[in-house]
Amino acid sequence: MITTSPTPGSVADLVAKAGLPDNHPIKELPGLTWHATNPLKDAQPPILTLDDLAARTDNELLQIPGFGGRRLDAVKAAIITASEGR
């Protein structure tokens, strides 16, 4: 799993700047484990792609059971890493 420090910017901002396809699966972001992806997959409605992720605010994501600040930071770091590797 990626070790993270708080990442500036909202998830939506990071997704917009990443230049990755909207339909890019979250589970394929580098370094993420099921600890971060399963709560998103189990959300209602499920959050499976970057487009789904960008449609939610950080506060909405933090309301998902099992998805806290550390997991949010891990997702943000993974988006940054994926955008640097494209």
Score class of each variant (00 low, 15 high):
residue 56 R to L: 08
residue 69 G to Y: 00
residue 50 L to P: 01
residue 28 E to R: 15
residue 27 K to H: 13
residue 6 P to N: 05
residue 62 L to C: 10
residue 26 I to H: 10
residue 62 L to D: 02
residue 51 D to A: 15
residue 33 T to R: 14
residue 66 G to W: 02
residue 85 G to M: 11
residue 18 A to V: 07
residue 48 L to S: 12
residue 5 S to K: 08
residue 1 M to T: 14
residue 37 T to Y: 03
residue 33 T to A: 11
residue 7 T to M: 09
residue 82 A to P: 09
residue 64 I to Y: 08
residue 75 V to L: 10
residue 31 G to V: 00
residue 26 I to P: 11
residue 56 R to C: 14
residue 64 I to C: 08
residue 76 K to E: 00
residue 57 T to D: 07
residue 38 N to K: 15
residue 1 M to A: 13
residue 16 A to Q: 14
residue 19 G to F: 06
residue 35 H to Q: 13
residue 5 S to Y: 00
residue 40 L to T: 07
residue 79 I to Q: 01
residue 43 A to G: 08
residue 7 T to V: 15
residue 80 I to M: 12
residue 25 P to Y: 13
residue 45 P to V: 10
residue 57 T to P: 00
residue 59 N to L: 07
residue 84 E to N: 14
residue 18 A to N: 11
residue 68 G to E: 05
residue 14 L to F: 10
residue 63 Q to F: 02
residue 8 P to N: 08
residue 7 T to G: 03
residue 2 I to Y: 05
residue 59 N to C: 00
residue 39 P to I: 02
residue 66 G to M: 06
residue 58 D to P: 03
residue 42 D to K: 15
residue 66 G to Q: 08
residue 35 H to L: 12
residue 74 A to W: 04
residue 54 A to H: 05
residue 12 A to M: 04
residue 57 T to S: 15
residue 36 A to Y: 01
residue 38 N to A: 12
residue 31 G to N: 00
residue 21 P to K: 06
residue 40 L to C: 03
residue 70 R to K: 12
residue 85 G to C: 03
residue 64 I to F: 07
residue 21 P to F: 09
